[in-house]
C-alpha cells in the first residue's frame, strides 16, 4: 500500500504541479498535499507528494539508500 520514493523538487509548475527528480529520474507530481519549495525533498506516492521530508533528518535516508547502491 505504500510504495513511495524521496525526490527533490526541481521546478514548480502551474496547476499545483511540480517536476521532481529521483536519482536521474524526472517526473511530474501533484503538490496539493504539501508545502514545498524548489530544492526541498518530498515523499512521492502514486504521482503525488504526500509529505515533505525534514532536511535535518533526510541525511539518514539518503545514507541508507546509498549503502544499498541506489
Amino acid at each position: 500500500m505504500c510504495l513511495a520514493i524521496p525526490a527533490r523538487i526541481s521546478q514548480l509548475l502551474d496547476n499545483h504541479l511540480a517536476t521532481a527528480e529521483y536519482n536521474g529520474n524526472g517526473m511530474t507530481v501533484e503538490m496539493g498535499l504539501v508545502e514545498a519549495e524548489v530544492g526541498d525533498y518530498v515523499l512521492i506516492h502514486a504521482g503525488c507528494a504526500i509529505e515533505r521530508i525534514d532536511p535535518a533528518m533526510a541525511a539518514d535516508i539518503f545514507e541508507i539508500l546509498k549503502e544499498l547502491g541506489a
Binding site: 496539493g32 498535499l33 508545502e35 515523499l43 504526500i50 509529505e51 521530508i53 525534514d54
Partner: peptide, 16 residues
Amino acid sequence: YPAIVRPEGNPRAQAV
C-alpha cells in the same frame, strides 16, 4: 522514520 513521520502526521492531507 522521523524524516517522514511527524507526531501529528500531515494536517493538509487529513484536512482534505
